[in-house]
Design a protein around this nucleic acid. Structure first.
Lengths: 233, 233
DNA sequence: ATCGGTCAGGTTGTATGCAATCTCATTATC
DNA sequence: GATAATGAGATTGCATACAACCTGACCGAT
């Protein structure tokens, strides 16, 4: 990453941006951030550059950094990329095969989620956190099994989008989560059966649907059709 | 990007790394680079951080930056990602449709390439440069037509790989280029016909084959099979 | 002889000063 | 009255000084 203090500042700044603590287009001044963080301009400058590279800020020479705006189409575009890249990960994981340990971890997340979601009551905080953690492990295990150095970083830049930040979002609808649990189960089965093509497209559709659901929850008025779906083929 | 001088240094450093002017694993010292570039440590530090973000350097706190090694599997992994992402671009371009201007540009690159490659003689420098430029326009036009903010940057990080740098490579084999020209023609036809699925997979295969050809030219001994193809499905 | 400690040199990390550039309000000109 | 020029304040860009840390050699103890 970057340097000790600069590294921490970069992460703090990133989280602030993702949490929506700045307005889109806002000019982030170095001295202002330095005072806020209790540091000098040097590490702040590095943190700004790092977040610009991550696509969260825009830079103009001699003018500094402004917060990059994210519209609905940008969120849809990010999920399109996620679907495509995680589809690759699922296919490669199926082609290469899972280690016994990876297979065990994936099965465990699926079974645990099914158990957590078995009741009809809305999820309490513990259940939500359990689901969030299991979801992360499921996707992370497949990405690691794909064994492609470029997948992880590419996914990070497309997952860290203001407005889709898990702490902000938190639309833990049990109906949706049960649907996702079913997706996970089928994807896991395909990977174990070494069916790469099915795994790829089920994963693609899984991520795409999750994106649709999030866009729907963000714009309750109109459905996700005009945001995510392009022209018909 | 970054600051005036730092921006230039970042590009110079990147080109030096891509051109293979440093050994893999080499420790890049700030003062040394500063003297080489005739600047102070401040912009050099920004250039190092930028190239680390681009995946060309590795950073350890209080130890600085070392040149990241790239093995054959890394090149194969990069082409896998390129194939997947450019496949998305081709599909989206087909779904959204091309502007008349974009359609014209694509047709022109295909026809010009076909003319340049019509002879049997090996290509001279002008022909090579023409093909390189046309190839860039073809891919760039499709990527722009896909209209997804995340595609361009993701492709850059996966295209800028030491050892696959065009000036270094320069394996302009007319037989291969004619094959690629045929790929381009079919991909262009699919996009114009709004056949997104065919466009996606033809593009994926096009990039994949190009990767195979490059790996073959890099390791003439063994074929690309063990590098690019994973386990059978 | 081997292992651990200590210190000097070198490298990175941060702070700060100065120069260059931009912003924007005020003024001058048409 | 509208537009262009000007200048002060603010902000970024770069250089450099100092502090923190790491590396490796030397030395002493076991």
């Amino acid at each position: 990453m970057t340097q000790p203090i600069a590294q921490a500042l970069s992460a703090r700044l990133r989280d602030m941006i993702l949490a929506g603590e700045f307005q889109a287009g806002q000019h982030l001044r170095e001295v202002q951030l330095a005072q806020l963080f209790g540091a000098s301009r040097t590490p702040v400058r590095l943190a700004l550059a790092a977040n610009e590279k991550d696509g969260l800020l825009e830079y103009s020479p001699n003018r500094g950094y402004v917060v990059r705006p994210f519209a609905g189409e940008d969120i849809a575009a990010a999920f399109e990329m996620r679907a495509q890249i995680e589809g690759l990960a699922a296919r490669k994981a199926a082609e290469r095969g899972l280690s016994p340990e990876a297979a065990r971890r994936i099965a465990e997340t699926i079974d645990t989620d099914a158990r957590v979601l078995s009741g009809d009551a809305p999820l309490d905080d513990g259940a939500r956190e359990a689901w969030r953690a299991n979801n992360a492990v499921f996707h992370k295990t497949i990405i690691e099994a794909a064994d492609n150095r470029f997948i992880g970083p590419a996914l990070q830049t497309v997952q860290r989008i203001p407005g889709v930040y898990p702490p902000v979002l938190a639309s833990y609808d049990p109906v949706l989560l049960r649907k996702y649990n079913g997706h996970h189960r089928r994807i896991g089965e395909c990977i174990l059966a070494r069916q790469g093509t099915r795994a790829e497209f089920l994963m693609r559709e899984h991520v795409f649907e999750a994106g649709e659901d999030i866009l729907t929850s963000l714009h309750p008025a109109h459905g996700p059709a005009q945001d995510l779906a392009g022209a018909a083929e």
